[in-house]
Amino acid sequence: MADGKVAVALTVNGERREALVEPRLLLSDFIRHVLRLTGTHVGCEHGVCGACTVLVDGAACRSCLLFAVQANGAEIVTVEGLAGPDGALAPLQQAFRDCHALQCGYCTPGFLISAHAFLRDTPDAAERSDAEIRSALSGNLCRCTGYQAIVKAVRQAAPAYREAGLEERR
């Protein structure tokens, strides 16, 4: 039989959070139902659709494939953590809007996190082929857009990441 609840302490979008959770609680459910950060969506709960993608210690991961207890001590970033401190849309989010890269918006948080990780790690993304960008996005399913506008938005946001990267290194 299960033992009792386990304490977890982690940082989410820069804020320290603590809770007692059952070991079997999925990280996706923890984020949505315990922390009430409902921007992270659950689409398949078996690691295919990518709607629940979050950053765990900087790495984009499916939050439905982790238990909350495994995130003890981790730094998590969800879609709510992407915008600026004043709530202004980040360049990637703005690009999604400009390019009509979302329709129902359900897959969007996962795409934003995946694209954010890709652009952060790929300073020359703007020069990459469509096939490479599409490959980077292929871990997220979208049923509305046909992906074309998402590819366009990622391309549009690329220079902002390169500049931010240069800024950081300076």
């Binding site: 990518g50 984009a60 991961c61 499916r62 995946s114 990780a117 871990g139």
Partner: peptide
């Protein structure tokens, strides 16, 4: 490795 699932899966 590029054929192994997707980078989010390979991250973990």
């Amino acid at each position: 490795l590029p054929h192994v699932a997707h980078f989010q899966i390979r991250n973990r």
